[in-house]
């Protein structure tokens, strides 16, 4: 680089680049989303090859590399397996909006699941310091549902009686 650069103004070009997308849901994820929307039911897909539950249901179970073959209703209650308390205000890549912090994302093993198949979602509590591994939570459904993961608003911490 020439020495002139030390004095030169460096122009940067600011561009917002986006391309509208239409994501297919397919028959598997699609069925899961329809059940959320129409019936407020959380449906897991079980693979008989290894007994694994898929949540959310996907085309193929990565471990047995087979398709799931049995739909089973699970939840809405569950147990928190792991969680992250997020203090860093990252933008929602779908909307560009920045969330209020702190918020909690959790991996919830729903009642009725055999084995481990945690569903990833927001966890809310009046006092987030009470959110712990092993805590009981329950799915709270949105009033207006449109066939997306946001049809579950979040999982709500169930406060244990002291």
């Amino acid at each position: 680089m020439s020495e002139a650069n030390t004095e030169q103004e460096l122009i940067v070009s600011r561009q917002i680049l986006s391309i509208n997308q239409t994501f297919s849901t397919g028959p598997v994820m699609g069925r899961f989303l329809i059940e959320l929307r129409d019936n407020k039911r959380i449906m897991a897909l079980r693979c008989s090859a290894n007994g694994r539950y898929l949540l959310p249901p996907r085309e193929v179970d990565a471990m047995s590399v087979t398709e799931g073959d049995e739909w089973i209703e699970v939840g809405p209650g569950g147990t928190l397996r792991e969680y992250d308390v997020v203090y860093y205000a990252s933008p929602d890549p779908l909307t560009g909006e920045t969330r209020d912090v702190p918020y909690v994302i959790g991996w919830v093993n729903l009642d009725g699941v055999e084995g481990i198949a945690p569903l990833w979602h927001l966890v809310e509590a009046d006092d987030i310091s009470k959110i712990k591994t092993g805590a009981r939570v329950e799915a709270i459904f949105a009033e207006k549902r449109s066939g997306t993961m946001e049809d579950i608003k979040h999982f709500k911490l169930i406060e244990e009686e002291a």
Partner: peptide, 11 residues
């Protein structure tokens, strides 16, 4: 469809 709103980068 199911994770993008939740992911906080690699954090």
């Amino acid at each position: 469809l199911w994770g993008r709103k939740l992911q906080a980068g690699a954090l």
